[in-house]
Amino acid sequence: MGNSGALAGSSLLRISVPAALALAETACTARDEAHAYQTLTSAEARELDAISARILPTTDTPGAREAGVVYFFDTVLGDQFAGQLGGFRALMGQFLGGIEGRFAGAKMFSDLNETDQDAYLTDHDKTPFFGMLHAFTMMGFFAMSSYGGNKDNIGWKLIGFDGRGAAQPPFGYYDAQYMQGERDDD
């Protein structure tokens, strides 16, 4: 994956937009065609998708689910974070293990309605599992889409990051105002 990043970065000067789009398209096509996960089981993926969807919920704008952060988890837990996979699974088991005793008839996080999901998360948002998944969700939402998440740059669009890799002043409101003031002084 380091290579794909270097590839995108090196080309940013001249052909940044087409190159980045090409990478994103490749990643998205691959994802849409084959839903098989490389690292996670389908059951694990379902739970992680459900939890991350409460961290960055779908509102009037897309959230973690639409950005496909679970595909990012699948990528990096099999590669850059492979060393953490075992620990992550153990923590996830502990997290899920408390659900049955708390909610009658439910075993999995994905079995709960959103209100119960949020209630359960509220009780667990100081746990190491939540800390890890929160960090992974932010990475999956905002890393280059070549890692599997941030589909169609959903994360970047949400915060107003253009990702173009070059800019011309004025950059924002206050420098534009400043330059206007300087011109008025002349």
Binding site: S4, G5, G9, S10, Y147
Partner: peptide
């Protein structure tokens, strides 16, 4: 040419 804008690679790794 080895320098990228890949934040995951550069910061997280």
């Amino acid at each position: 040419k080895d320098f990228s804008h890949d934040e995951f690679d550069v910061f997280m790794m």
